[in-house]
Design a protein around this nucleic acid. Structure first.
Length: 802
DNA sequence: ACTACATGGCAA
DNA sequence: TGCCATGTAGTA
């Protein structure tokens, strides 16, 4: 039996399968989709079996060294999907397969020297092997790198042997369980009148008073105050049994989830769910765009669609943007489907993710709620995929494989003949355009549930405020409403869009702005640490007290961060209790949830935050939403700037007045005439769509064209320019007349980590060979020895030009 | 990616 | 001539 294996080497020359013999004793075990360890040159590597066959043209095949999985970790569907993914994202097969599995399953490698002939070791080396006959190469090179050569020549002479090891990151969690082994012995000890061994007695007493069975040792120890050695000595006497068992790490441990029943659907919801249920019923693939205003009850439509899928014995995937994967969101699914739900998101540890993933593989759950990568959940009987907040940019992965979860979802939908539901209050233009064309079915929820009105939005021109002598960051209308909310004991949300408006420092005398020495980007001021930081490479420096360029002392901090808003707020509304949510206050595990719960319990009057409070949150007592600077994003060099602004404003406004209390939104800005701000305030998606489509058509942007993007980077500016020009001329000779070639031009961020960046953009409608040309260009420069340092990334469907 | 092997320059 | 550095092909 022969196994075709892709090995764990992300390189173009080995981007194919290699044939290995399967030893006869494993023939009944080996299957496609299993991880294996194989010899590859002198090393050992992890790999995936993609195929088993009976013959191979290769001569001198080696044996598989080890099979790592009892059952395949990639289903045959995922094997096929991985191939498609690699080919359509210009990635290597191995990279695609690894992206589908939890990080814990990726191998780590270790190289070590082992002594064969200890008597021949020279005096300089011998001490290294005193403790053990084997030493790790990395340990040696860290401490005394000069010895490496000696070790290598010794291994050539046969004194030492080089051993390659493949380690598995995956570690299953084991927990000790305890139970009574001998009841009469236990009773005997308890009966002893001595004052000795009180802890032992307490422990046994506890167990005797519980129904017979296994208990968590940790729990029993905590209950009785006994310690581990106490239990162990009882174990040695044969009174207890202590057993280690594998358990799942449960990130939701100890949380009681209130079960919810399906709510009666409104007429609108009934209409919207119809095409989804039909697709499920008829076992048809269909992509349904569920366009529903904020608060229109999309989630209930999701939940009931999933229920119908589960009733058919099938499984469901729900994708949620990372940022809104809040406990509140998760609870809605766990509340309805209980323990049938697994959750996958970046807040979990590697081990927790691994455990959640194994629940899916073992068919112990049938619903997955997760961020982008959850789209690869190894379900075999998939009945629906739901992508909430469909327009979110985080569904596109920005490093290899550069996939869009929406595309993967549709691929899987076709494979399983099941519906894909794209839900949003503000669909991306691409998606809405496809729905208009009839490629997707369109289901609209135009009203909020319980006929709650959409919140009233007031736009405040901050230039006017300034003219009238208000120099604070809060406009008069906003201040009034904040005060009113405090009096009525209602809650407010203040949203600050910091992106593109990060705090920077500027010299008032010479105009100097602190820049990163490695990237073409200004440094961001972090008051908390008193330092300036680069958000691209992590470079840090302390805040200068005088201008480094002209030594003036008039150095000022510009821009507004949440910290600054918090301080200002404390000055003007000292009685308000404020919770601040941003990267700084939510970096610790669980702090995100803590802050939200505190707000929900009414422990604060104002929730102040960035992006992360814009989505999915639902607090009944919130009546006011304030947007401090609505237009900061509009001027970014991004053709989606208007779309993103509209989406964000709509999402944030949607946090207000979702229940009995009416909501009000105040939007502050300078460029308030802009159509995306004006239309968002009127909750008018359709007009925005029409307007924005005209702009896109005029400037030849998506959804009228696809964007192909080739980015070149090199330490040497001349090399990047040369390479990108060559590539541009190569492409210009081949592109169809319908396509447009732009560039080469410098990237919006012209330098990152000392590397200059240039890009070539291709706007195209149909260029089936573009992928091949990109590959040719990459291969060409890979061969060129003068271009070794050149990095090229290609994206056939770029979402942004950054 | 990593390694073993080939090539070629320079000191002895 | 031999040793080291660097370049390059191959991994089944």
């Amino acid at each position: 039996m022969i196994a075709a294996v892709v090995v764990d080497v992300p390189s173009g020359s080995v981007n194919k399968t290699f044939d290995y013999k399967v030893p006869s004793e494993w023939e009944t075990w080996a299957e496609p989709g299993m991880r294996v360890i194989v010899p590859f040159g002198p090393r050992k590597l992890q790999g995936f079996i993609l195929e088993v066959k009976s013959s191979s043209p290769v001569k001198g095949m080696k044996n598989i060294s080890e099979i790592l999985d009892p059952l395949p970790v990639l289903t045959s569907e995922l094997i096929e999907l991985g191939r498609w993914l690699a080919e359509n994202t210009l990635s290597f097969y191995i990279t695609a397969y690894q992206a589908m599995l939890p990080a814990a399953m990726k191998a780590t490698y270790e190289k070590s020297f082992q002594v064969l002939q200890p008597e021949k070791l020279p005096d300089t080396i011998a001490p290294l092997f005193l403790a053990s006959s084997e030493i790790n190469v990395n340990d040696v090179t860290k401490e005394n790198p000069h010895l490496l050569q000696t070790l290598q020549s010794l291994s050539k002479e046969g004194v030492l042997d080089v051993v390659y090891k493949v380690k598995n990151k995956a570690n299953k969690k084991k927990v000790k369980f305890v139970s009574l082994a001998d009841q009469s012995l236990a009773a005997e000890i308890l009966g002893q009148n001595q004052k000795k061994a009180e802890k032992q007695k307490a422990l046994l007493n506890e167990l005797l008073h519980r129904p017979p069975g296994e208990y968590l040792l940790q729990e029993i120890l905590a209950e009785t105050g006994a310690s581990l050695p106490t239990a162990q000595s009882l174990f040695k006497k044969g009174i207890l049994t202590i057993e280690e068992k594998e358990v799942y790490r449960d990130p939701f441990q100890g949380r009681t989830m209130k079960r919810t029943a399906p709510l009666p659907l409104t007429e609108n919801q009934e209409n919207a769910i119809k095409p989804i249920l039909e697709s499920i019923e008829n076992h048809n693939h269909e992509t349904v765009l569920l366009h529903g205003v904020t608060g229109s009850g999309k989630t209930e439509v999701y939940l009931q669609s999933i229920q119908s899928v589960l009733d058919k014995g099938k499984e469901a995937i729900v994708l949620v943007p990372e940022i809104s994967l809040t406990p509140q969101m998760v609870n809605r699914f766990k509340g309805r489907f209980g323990s049938a739900v697994a959750v996958l998101h970046s807040g979990l540890s590697i081990g927790e993710k691994y455990d959640e993933w194994r629940k899916i593989l073992r068919k112990e759950v049938s619903v997955v709620v997760g961020a982008r990568s959850a789209i690869f959940a190894p379900f075999q009987n998939l009945g629906i995929v739901i992508i909430d907040e469909e327009h979110e940019t985080s569904y596109k992965q920005e490093d290899h494989p550069r996939y869009h979860a929406r595309d993967v979802a549709i691929w899987r939908g076709k494979y399983h003949s099941c519906p894909i539901v794209l839900g949003s209050a503000t669909p991306s233009l691409e998606t809405y355009a496809r729905a208009q064309k009839g490629r997707y079915q369109l289901a609209e929820l135009a009203n909020r549930v319980h006929s709650n009105p959409m919140p009233e939005v007031t736009i405040v021109d901050m230039r006017e405020e300034l003219k009238n002598g208000n120099r604070s960051m809060f406009s008069l209308p906003l201040m009034d409403k904040l005060k009113e909310g405090l009096e009525k004991r209602e809650q407010s949300v203040l949203f600050l869009n910091r992106r593109g408006y990060a705090s920077f420092i500027l010299c008032r005398d010479c105009g100097y702005v602190a820049q990163c020495p490695h990237c073409d980007i200004s440094l961001t001021y972090h008051k908390r640490f008193g330092e300036l930081k680069c958000h691209y490479c992590g470079y840090k420096e302390s805040v200068p007290s005088v201008c480094p360029s002209c030594t003036s002392e008039h150095i000022r901090f510009f821009g507004t961060g949440t910290q600054k808003v918090e301080e200002e707020l404390a000055k003007v509304l000292p009685e308000a209790r404020v919770i601040r949510m941003d990267v700084d206050t939510t970096s610790k595990k669980g702090s995100h949830e803590k802050l939200l719960t505190a707000f929900e319990n009414g422990e604060a009057d104002i929730l102040l935050g960035t992006q992360m409070i814009a989505k999915g949150l639902d607090f009944p007592k919130v009546t006011l939403v304030g947007v401090l600077a609505a237009d900061t994003m509009l001027h970014l060099p991004d053709f989606r700037a208007s779309e993103k602004t509209f989406q964000l404003l709509t999402q944030v406004s949607g946090r207000a007045g979702r229940h009995e209390l009416e909501g009000k939104v105040i939007v502050q800005g300078y460029d308030i005439q802009h159509y995306s701000i004006q239309l968002a305030s009127k909750h008018d998606y359709h007009t925005f769509y029409q307007h924005e489509m005209q702009t896109r058509k005029l400037h030849q942007y998506p959804p009228f064209y696809y964007l192909g993007l080739l980015t070149f980077s090199h330490l040497d500016l001349m090399q990047v320019v040369e390479a990108s020009e060559k590539a541009a001329s190569f492409l210009s000779k081949r592109l169809s007349p319908e396509s447009l070639l732009l560039g080469p031009v410098t990237s919006p961020i012209a330098r990152v980590k000392d590397r200059y960046r240039y890009q070539v953009m291709i706007k195209y409608k149909n260029e089936p060979k573009l992928r091949n040309w990109f590959e040719e260009i990459m291969a060409h420069f890979q061969k060129d020895k003068d271009m070794k340092e050149l990095q090229i990334t290609g994206d056939l469907n770029a979402q942004t030009l950054m």
